[in-house]
Amino acid sequence: MDAPAKKKLRLATATLAGCFGCHMSFLDIDERLFDLVELVEFDRSPLTDIKEVGPCDIGLIEGGLCNAENVHVLRDFRKHCRILVAVGACAINGGLPAQRNPIPLHEILSEVYLTEPGLAHSGIPNDPELPLPLNKVHPIHEVVKVDYFLPGCPPSGDAIWKFLTDLLAGREPELGHALMHYD
């Protein structure tokens, strides 16, 4: 006889200003995905194509905050997720996109759209459909409260697996030397 099915936890994931590398790494847990879906149900995530996040237990955020839309998605996740996790270098410290931070935004936009060859003279895009860029790229903990951080660029599949299994088992996630990487 089967034991009564344990209630599955709901998990959502999103990429903000990131490269989807952390999501790719997530897929690197390979066949352990089968174990994972025994434990969790996916809410909004590139894996499900659900567009709006609903009430969740865990939200995984890849990428930092580069524009207004990133802020909306992040706030939505914070509102709906009991536990919010910053996954990867960009979510944690802005990562590669944040390397624009020392340069004033107007200089960047001018160089890309007005002065240098390439897109020059195309004008700065002003379609209301496009999210406006923030002055600086911010790590997500500077805008909402973040409960856990999983470093790496990307964190390896093993690190993600270890982190999630710890969390799902109610343990404080602990990577140890082998899985702890900022790169």
Binding site: I92, A98, N101, K136, V146
Partner: peptide, 15 residues
């Protein structure tokens, strides 16, 4: 030291 995040707001200095 098991540092998972830099925790504070970043200064992002121009150097």
């Amino acid at each position: 030291l098991n540092m998972m995040t830099a925790h504070y707001d970043h200064f992002f200095p121009n150097r």
